[in-house]
Design a protein around this nucleic acid. Structure first.
Lengths: 139, 139
DNA sequence: GTGTTTGCAAACAATTTGCAGAATT
DNA sequence: AATTCTGCAAATTGTTTGCAAACAC
């Protein structure tokens, strides 16, 4: 049988994620936790993130950028990825569950759920681009 | 300047993809093209797939299974991934573009597009499960 | 003490890249 | 002849795993 034992590393990973509004990658988690526990290893971060996902305490978010992101909110919701900085954030809107009905009508298999990903440019990147263009046009 | 030269390998990759209703991975493309051109290398397959994507002739589809899939249909549409066999297919329904308006109202950044991914069990896996047969992963 | 978790390094899987030779124009 | 494309192998990147020591209960 497998009981769960306390680990300060795991605790701090949970805390760190909970304190973010975006959804960092394992490496970003690692870089940050290292401030507090300089000896933590990347393997431990990966192991704990996977454990937390399978415990249902956090959610793994894949968005096609080749890296997994982690979200402390396990409720079903939509995400946004910025094509400039790659940051992944929540989109605070209702999920369109009626889409699953439409899909089921037109698809020959059972639909169990869906995800949606919006992409574009986030606010801070939009601002940076505007400033960068202005400064860049110094001829 | 970079002109494009003919290559039978690239042609056969395009043909192979066009003849599939599902969206294979680079490795599956490789395995299949190898029947025709036994000396083709995986690197060439990857290079051509990337080239075709950047030419806008095919589409790259990421669906969180850790491998990229390739779709000969470049129009915006939704996908389905089977949690049993991993096969990725199209869902022939209209895209819900009004979602982008909703998202834009609630999100502080510019929304340029969206994708949706449905998941569940495809027909052939459902049948196999009912029969109790073994199932292999087809990516 | 028993079982879980850690740090480290090595292993892995998917994809990319450097290079010399082959193919296309 | 000039470029582009290929096959091969090595390199990269993100993630997982084996193991002995450290930690929690």
């Amino acid at each position: 049988m497998k009981t769960l034992k306390y680990s300060r590393q795991r605790e701090s990973i949970k805390e760190f994620l909970a304190g973010r509004k975006d959804h960092p990658t394992a490496d970003v988690v690692y870089m940050n936790i290292r401030q507090l526990y300089p000896n933590i290893s990347l393997g431990t971060v990966y192991r704990n993130l996977s454990l937390l996902v399978s415990l249902g305490e956090i959610q793994r978010v894949s968005c096609g950028d080749g890296v997994e992101h982690f979200d402390p909110n396990t409720a079903s919701h939509y995400h946004f990825i910025c094509r400039e900085c790659g940051k992944v954030q929540d989109v605070p809107m209702e999920t369109a569950d009626h889409l699953e009905k439409s899909a089921a009508e037109r698809f020959d298999g059972s639909i169990e759920g869906h995800t949606a990903l919006f992409y574009g440019v986030c606010r801070s990147c939009r601002e940076k681009i505007q400033k960068g263009l202005d400064k860049g046009k110094v001829m």
